[in-house]
């Protein structure tokens, strides 16, 4: 298993290079850019703010609303800019992930609006979106029980792999996005497309959790380095 190399030269349990930046949009309350390989995602968070229309607001807690959108230039052939069935589904999924991770009873009758733009799509866009939104939510100062880290795992040509590219995704027998609150070891998202045996499922879950811990560390470092930059910037006075 260890000699196996993927098309882009990665090992089976290796994630693509990560890159992230927090607080890049001035008009949003919180924002983040997240990159995993060639998948590039921008997330913006507004709120908590007044919920409109008001009759849909909850008297007990704030509600997360999400909009996942792929830009027309994110894929090789132009994608129609309106929300497709798939995008609406992923929006709902991201909304449900963050409805469980945010302490929402602090601000009743409000909405937290999350906007996600996929700038370049190369597989695993929904997990990249979740990672980006987490960073944006922390930037907006919203109460989270833990950072949410996500990764996709799957089975390609009979081989179990972590972090599928777009190409791998198309030929895969199964793919499974996972999102977790790593420090509590709590799953907030688990989807599975395709067929796996029980043993394969278990080992994929284990591989996914290892990758998630790496992404979690990366997210933490990214948020902390932002503050160190402040210190350097005005350190001499």
């Amino acid at each position: 298993m260890s000699e196996f190399k993927r098309k882009d030269g990665r090992a089976y349990n290796e994630i693509r290079p990560l890159k992230a930046e927090v607080g890049i949009l001035k008009n949003a309350d919180g924002s983040a850019y997240f990159e995993i390989g060639n998948t590039k995602v921008l997330a913006a968070v507004f709120g908590p703010r007044e919920y409109h229309p008001k009759h849909e607001a909850s008297l007990q807690e704030g509600i997360v609303r999400a909009r996942y959108h792929m830009t027309p230039f994110s894929v090789k052939e132009r994608k129609a800019p309106t929300l497709s069935r798939r995008e609406i589904e992923i929006s709902k999924l991201i909304k449900e992930v963050f409805n469980t991770c945010i302490k929402r009873d602090l601000f009743p009758r409000t909405a937290i609006d999350v906007y996600i733009e996929v700038l370049n799509a190369d597989g695993s866009t929904r997990v990249a979106s979740i990672n980006a939104v987490t960073l944006a939510l922390v930037d907006a100062g919203i109460f989270l029980y833990d950072l949410v880290s996500a990764v996709s795992v799957g089975k390609v040509n009979g081989q179990l792999v972590v972090d599928l590219t777009g190409e791998e995704d198309q030929i895969s027998e199964a793919d499974m996005p996972i999102a977790m609150m790593p420090s509590k070891k709590r799953f907030v998202l688990l989807q599975l497309d395709g067929e796996l045996t029980y043993e394969e499922f278990n080992s994929l879950l284990k591989m996914g959790m290892e990758a998630i811990n790496k992404i979690y560390e990366f997210q933490r470092n990214c948020l902390k380095s932002k503050l160190e930059e402040y210190l350097k910037f005005y350190g001499q006075i």
């Binding site: 989270l144 029980y145 833990d146 950072l147 420090s183 509590k184 948020l223 503050l227």
Partner: peptide
Amino acid sequence: EIVLPGSL
């Protein structure tokens, strides 16, 4: 100390 969401 700097703390993040979920820090013990």
